[in-house]
């Protein structure tokens, strides 16, 4: 399974606090997403060069991430800087973790495995966003988008009637419902496993609290639909909308 070129969302920005880490997958491969204490996000291969344990189980100390197992510490460039069992050792520069380009946009953390020269521009957008949640589903990304299409939602802020899902580019989609605009980051975790990162494009003054809860309810309904199997999926969307 290979990863499509371009940028991939790996988490909502707000889901990774400074000084914390989490594991994730892209096309079946394991990655660790972590934020150093200065707030900068990093996406690396989730594999400690020492014995191959997951770095996402480790912990962040300043601008180093430390492996849980034997405490090897890596700097933000992925280079091993400290080995507790040999505290005086000048660690060889060859002990490194593969690191990937990482940006934050649209309220999400993005990465790409593309080599520098043929790297596309990262997703656009530095407008204000309000995070909702990430949905994890046991289906491919197409199945996830089909479920979104079949899952009409009521807007939090009323506006012109209508409902539109459009692809901004690559893995980023925009859903417009009434006066609301949502940004949907589609992550391919594996063949039959995907994630949808949902953020509201708008100001916290309008959406913080009740607006977030409104869209979280939609995500839960979407999850229910995805988990409910084909019998429910075959029902007309209008009936589903009423049921919700």
């Amino acid at each position: 399974m290979s990863l499509a070129p371009g940028w991939h969302p790996v988490a909502l920005s707000g889901s990774i606090d400074p000084g914390t880490s989490a594991g994730t997958h892209l096309a079946g491969r394991e990655y660790v997403v972590w934020r150093d204490n200065s707030g900068l996000a990093h996406v690396w291969e989730d594999r400690c060069p020492h014995r191959g344990m997951k770095l996402s189980f480790g912990f962040v100390r300043g601008d180093h991430i430390a492996c849980l197992y034997h405490g090897w510490q890596y700097d933000t460039a992925g280079r091993c800087r400290y080995i507790p069992a040999h505290p005086d050792l000048e660690v060889p520069a060859t002990i490194t973790v593969p690191v990937f380009a990482t940006v934050e946009a649209c309220g999400m953390i993005w990465t790409t495995t593309d080599a520098d020269p043929d790297r596309a521009a990262p997703p656009p957008g530095d407008g204000e966003t309000v995070p909702v949640a990430s949905l994890h589903a046991a289906c491919g990304t197409e199945g996830l988008l089909d479920a979104v299409r079949a899952m009409p939602a009521a807007p939090f802020v009323a506006g012109t009637a209508g409902w539109e899902l459009s692809q901004v580019g690559g893995t980023l989609w925009r859903l417009t419902v009434g006066g609301d605009t949502l940004l949907l980051g589609v992550q391919r975790l594996g063949d039959q496993r995907s994630a949808l990162h949902v953020a509201i494009e708008g100001s916290a003054a309008i959406y913080a609290g009740a607006g977030q809860a409104h869209w979280h309810a939609w995500i839960r309904a979407l999850r229910h639909r995805l988990g409910a199997g084909p019998a429910v999926g075959a029902r007309p969307a209008a009936a589903m909308a009423e049921a919700v």
């Binding site: 988490a11 909502l12 889901s15 606090d17 989490a22 594991g23 994730t24 996402s56 189980f57 990430s134």
Partner: peptide, 19 residues
């Protein structure tokens, strides 16, 4: 939960709460 194969990756709100 990792002891029984449920890792924390998909639970950001619980990660923050546990912290």
């Amino acid at each position: 939960s990792r002891d029984f194969g449920v890792d924390h990756d998909e639970y950001p709100a619980l990660r923050k709460w546990a912290r």
